[in-house]
């Protein structure tokens, strides 16, 4: 009996350990494959030039149009998401502090909102766009992605704000500050690390999402100059080039894949470092 127990213990310890370490392997494997496939095609030209005439037959050019388009869309959407998300998160934690049921309900709805698939946002954005008589453009893409990432901004920021001790609220209120001052002067400073994490997370999500911009941002070989022009995005550039029958073009998709992966990796790592740096508590 003792022996059986010990074997069971050991067996499950090894099994769970294997599952855990296999995740590191999977991540390493994915990154290795992406880099191995694309590194030969990744030249400076890929990054700093837009596609030229014969690009889709294997000619000269790069994916600058998609890189810039993706950055514009992600930055624009993040700014809009901040304008809506930050006050909303502060409101939950300042004005609704004394209504815990209301807070719980709002968090519940926001969590559910987080789960809506991006293709639904894409279809909705497309419909609104058609209704307003717009064509696929940078602006439509920005707005659609903003819908997608605002719940992420609110919920991530809120996670940090709700750990702020109650005493700090009470101290600020007892000194005669209004709840708005409490929100923008005390909670904002105290939860700044959460704000940074939220913004970077939302940005990373916005730059990598393809389904929502598929209908709304369109696709073009030019670097967009104005809000009403269509814009290419990196995920879509990869997607379209992968569908090409010409190996040269497919190889470029792999290289573009490296660019996108590196951008997302940088954002993910810097989110971690920055949130540690700006954190006001000693807990993490």
């Amino acid at each position: 009996m003792r022996r059986r127990k010990r074997i069971e213990e050991l067996f499950f310890k090894i099994l769970t350990g294997l599952a855990c370490y296999s995740l590191i392997l999977v991540l390493g494997y994915i990154i290795l494959i992406i880099f191995k496939k694309g590194i030969n095609m990744l030249t400076l030209d890929m990054i700093i030039t837009a596609p030229t005439g014969g690009y889709y037959y294997g000619g000269e050019g790069g994916v600058l149009n998609a890189i810039m388009g993706s950055l514009y869309i992600a930055i624009g959407a993040t700014v809009i998401a901040m304008i809506f998300g930050v006050p909303a998160a502060l409101f939950i934690n300042s004005h609704l502090q004394h209504k815990p049921r209301m807070q719980g309900f709002i968090r519940y709805l926001l969590d559910a909102l987080w789960g809506i698939p991006s293709i639904v946002y894409g279809a909705f954005g497309f419909m609104v766009m058609i209704m307003m008589g717009m064509s696929a453009s940078l602006l439509a893409g920005i707005i659609t992605v903003a819908f997608l990432i605002t719940p992420i901004v609110i919920r991530t920021f809120d996670e940090v704000l709700c750990t702020i001790p109650r005493g700090l609220h009470e101290a600020a209120l007892s000194l005669g500050s209004t709840r708005t001052q409490l929100a923008f002067k005390v909670l904002w400073k105290q939860g700044f690390s959460g704000f940074i994490t939220a913004v970077l997370l939302a940005f990373g999500r916005g730059i990598g999402d393809a389904a929502s911009v598929l209908f709304t941002a369109g696709y073009t070989d030019l670097v967009p100059q104005y809000l009403d022009e269509p814009a290419a995005t990196l995920p879509l550039a990869i997607f379209f080039q992968l569908g090409s029958p010409i190996p040269e073009v497919r190889n470029r998709a792999y290289a573009a894949g490296i660019i996108l992966t590196v951008i997302v990796l940088i954002i993910s790592v810097s989110a971690r470092l920055m949130s540690r740096k700006f954190s006001k508590t000693n807990l993490n």
Binding site: L23, V26, L27, I30, I34, G204, R205, I207, G208, D209, A210, A211, P235, L236, I238, F239, G257, L260, T261, V264, L265, I267, S268, V269, A271, R272
Partner: peptide, 11 residues
């Protein structure tokens, strides 16, 4: 885990 969650679906 964070990075795995952050890798875009197209990748």
């Amino acid at each position: 885990i964070d990075i795995l969650a952050g890798i875009p679906s197209v990748v």
